[in-house]
Design a protein around this nucleic acid. Structure first.
Lengths: 190, 190
DNA sequence: GTCTATAAGTTGATAGAC
DNA sequence: GTCTATCAACTTATAGAC
């Protein structure tokens, strides 16, 4: 059993955290090596293709973290309305005034790089699709039609990405609270 | 009558367009002076505080453009459900596959800089508030309560910011189309 | 007011010692 | 495998000619 932290993992976790808060272009490799304590030579040993490759692995890391967060909340609540409401309330606490700074999981990177790096865009697209799949499944389990479930997953994913952006910009959990409160009214069945 | 284009306006328009597509950090002043044809010395004559000052004026410019877009669509449609649906359909065409590249109006800048430049964050917050005010007013005119109108404005603003991000990342107008289609179902009155 | 040349620092990336 | 020294290119910003 090896309890030593692997430099590669430290780099991915540090990059993941910094990219969330300041975006791809806002974080230099110097910031990452300084914060992680891993020297630059090692970074290029583990990521020979440089910053872009590290970013893609950081995006995949964040994708996994977010999937686990969603599944933890969704696992305990069968009703999709209640599940989504609980999920957004969790986010409102996370992005509210107090606490240490967290940024949008990958939204900022996607906004910056969608037109200038196809590999990064594809990594972001993959994360978005995987998250939406969990949402879709939740609606399917509650007997929404497949078409309805897919559309509602898109709607709620957009709502969450937008809500996080509003919370960060307003420096307040209020926008996400307002969204959480409205969810039951939005999802009343006809 | 002076029909000469003012260098200051050219700079703001160019910066506004480039920041939308690639974000704040992703655009250098060299890109802006090259694309605008205005030399660097003139940029610092009109914007003595440099890039940050230019960015704030670019954000205010984009804010105005977006307000006019919303009001144009909203002006012709009194029912808020129909108005929002038309607005999102417009966006789905704008951000769909064809056409020249447009980025999120200010969402990317907000995501990048909310924690590292308070003046830029405030400019973004101001734009978000002004857009939401138009949304709120539309619901008030349709006799929603004030509290409901404010909350729904936040919900729909988040939906639009998130929808634009999904469209850019997926390189497709489909997410925004799906959102537009769901709007009537989301806004059924209880 | 307009523009060029250049400064001072930082960026992503590499070469090569150990 | 690990780390340091260094590179060329680029960044924002400035000084000063015209």
């Amino acid at each position: 059993m090896n309890e030593k932290v692997k430099p590669k993992d430290v780099l991915i976790e540090t990059a993941s955290r910094l990219f969330r808060v300041r975006g791809y272009c806002g974080v230099g490799l110097n910031d990452i090596i300084e914060e992680s304590g891993v020297p630059k030579g090692s970074l290029y040993y583990y990521f020979p293709e440089g910053k872009e490759q590290l970013a893609i692995e950081a995006i995949n890391h964040t994708k996994k973290l977010v999937m686990e967060e969603i599944q933890t909340v969704f696992g305990g609540i069968s009703n999709p309305i209640d599940a989504f409401q609980a999920h957004v309330y969790e986010l409102s606490k996370m992005f509210g005034e107090g606490g240490n700074p967290v940024g949008s999981p990958i939204g900022t990177i996607a906004g910056e790089k969608h037109s200038t790096s196809e590999p990064i865009r594809l990594a972001c697209e993959s994360a978005f699709k995987d998250w939406q799949s969990i949402y879709t499944e939740k609606f399917l389990e509650a007997d929404y039609t497949r078409q309805q479930s897919i559309s509602l997953a898109i709607v709620f994913h957009a709502l969450i990405e937008g809500g996080i952006l509003l919370a960060l910009t307003m420096k307040s959990g209020k926008p996400l609270e307002a969204i959480a409160e409205q969810i039951p009214l939005l999802l009343i069945k006809k």
